[in-house]
Amino acid sequence: MKINDVILQTVTKLVVFIILTFGVELFFSGHNDPGGGFIGGLVLSSALVLLFLVHDIETVEKGIPVDFKKVAAVGVLFVVGTGVGAVLFGASFLSQAFGHFELPVFGSTELATVVLFEAGVAMAVVGTVVTIMLSISEDV
């Protein structure tokens, strides 16, 4: 799938970073504001999908040498792992904990194990979407 479109490519170079930043912002804001692992992951993967659409697959794979199947697998591991982790601490499966901590730079910050869970969700989403995208478009 090769489209030679200079304008699109130039715009994409800039826009992708905006989208990625937005995705990360959505991920972290999800705790108290709209956003979260699923949406963050989807936005991140839409940035990647845009890259794959605008450039050809080989170029992108050279730039981002990541096996997205593994990303998805690690994500699932995170999600299940936080559940099992809770059991190891004597709580029941998938209990999430949170607390307020004094951190050097950030001041009083709320840290929650749900972040790990959401990170797993995001990784699973990114990995799966890109895997499907690549599998379909590489099948010539």
Partner: peptide, 8 residues
């Protein structure tokens, strides 16, 4: 659950 976003 320590979060203000009910959906999440």
């Amino acid at each position: 659950a320590g979060g203000k976003n009910i959906v999440n």
